[in-house]
């Protein structure tokens, strides 16, 4: 019997959120005395067996190029077949965009209870209880999964990637009867050359206080010095100062970086709902009454145009 981990990938690589899911699944397998196994659909540009260092022992690999696009219906079919072969008691997904598309279908297919958005290891001392984020980051719920097979989607940035001393994973080619996707992908637009916002450990974000898109260079310089992703508030995205995929908040992306630096953002409750899971928040705003200061760990009251370049200098000095 196994903990089966869905190994998500994009652009031929297993990204951080998926490595977190592997580490998380391997830890639960150890906790429950089960084997950590993986399901890999599609192809990687890297060595599959080396994923063993994250704790997965065996990987079922379906090397069908039709699986390079994650079609939820087709993936559900294949994952269900692998789950049966592997004897999965628990299936782990990353709660990234692909996990959100696929895990609910697998749950309905297998009648396996799903917790989407887990933030910690399950408590298995009495039943099977998983802590998850609810109310847009304002609370946690403890959800009991009552079915024999269970599914967890792990929130990105909630569990660390752990490199173990594990040997290379055994890669088992798996042939699945793959149906033709009923959704045809006609084009793919990838955002290139940027750190994906959902995975970034540090995020530098700007609001209306920056006065216009032409001023974003000061924020981008700070982000570049920190190796951070850039983000923005809703009014900034709505005014097309920045692309919509950078919008964080209630109706944009919800993120949980280690450090969120908010520049010229007042901190409306809808914005906080998207960033309040950040481990540390630093706020720079000229208005001392900005509500964001109440939700922050560090604050500077002052003019962003003077302060931000000095922060960039200080980071450069620190990093030599």
């Amino acid at each position: 019997m196994s903990v089966l981990i869905f190994i998500d990938h994009s652009d031929g690589a297993v990204k951080k959120a998926s490595l977190e899911a592997i580490s998380y699944g391997a830890k639960i397998a150890e906790q429950l005395g089960l084997t950590a196994e993986g399901a890999l659909l599609g192809n990687l540009n890297e060595d599959i067996a080396s994923l063993g260092k994250y704790g997965v022992k065996k990987i079922y690999h379906v090397a069908d190029v039709a699986l390079d696009h994650p079609d939820p219906q087709v993936f559900t079919e294949v994952i269900a077949q692998i789950a049966e072969k592997s004897g999965a008691k628990l299936i782990v997904f990353s709660n990234n965009l692909h996990g959100k598309a696929i895990a609910p279908r697998v749950s309905a297919r297998l009648k396996a209870g799903l917790v989407a958005g887990a933030v910690a290891l399950p408590d298995t001392s009495n039943g099977f209880i998983v802590k998850k984020n609810v109310f847009s980051g304002k609370a946690f719920a403890f959800i009991s999964i009552n079915t024999d097979i269970k599914i967890i989607s792990l929130n990105p940035n909630a569990y660390p990637v752990a490199v173990t001393e594990g040997a290379a994973a055994e890669v088992v080619p798996f042939t699945a009867a793959v149906g033709e996707p009923r959704i045809k992908v006609t084009a793919v637009n990838k955002v290139t050359g940027e750190i994906p916002l959902g995975e970034a450990e540090i995020v530098v974000s700007g609001g209306r206080g920056l006065k216009g898109p032409e001023n974003w260079n000061i924020l981008e310089d700070l982000a570049a010095a920190l190796g951070a992703a850039t983000a923005c508030s809703r009014p900034v995205a709505d005014a097309d100062w920045r692309p919509h995929h950078e919008h964080v908040g209630q109706t944009g992306l919800a993120i949980a970086p280690n450090l969120y630096i908010a520049i010229g953002i007042s901190g409306a409750i809808q914005h906080l709902a998207g960033v309040n899971r950040s481990k540390v928040i630093a706020v720079i705003n000229k208005d001392p009454e900005a509500p964001f200061f109440k939700a922050a760990d560090y604050g500077i009251v002052g003019d962003a145009f003077e302060i931000v370049p000095k922060l960039t200098e200080a980071v450069k000095a620190l990093k030599g």
Partner: peptide, 9 residues
């Protein structure tokens, strides 16, 4: 999708 978007039919 992860890292971008897909146009689908």
């Amino acid at each position: 999708i992860e890292g971008g978007e897909e146009i689908v039919q």
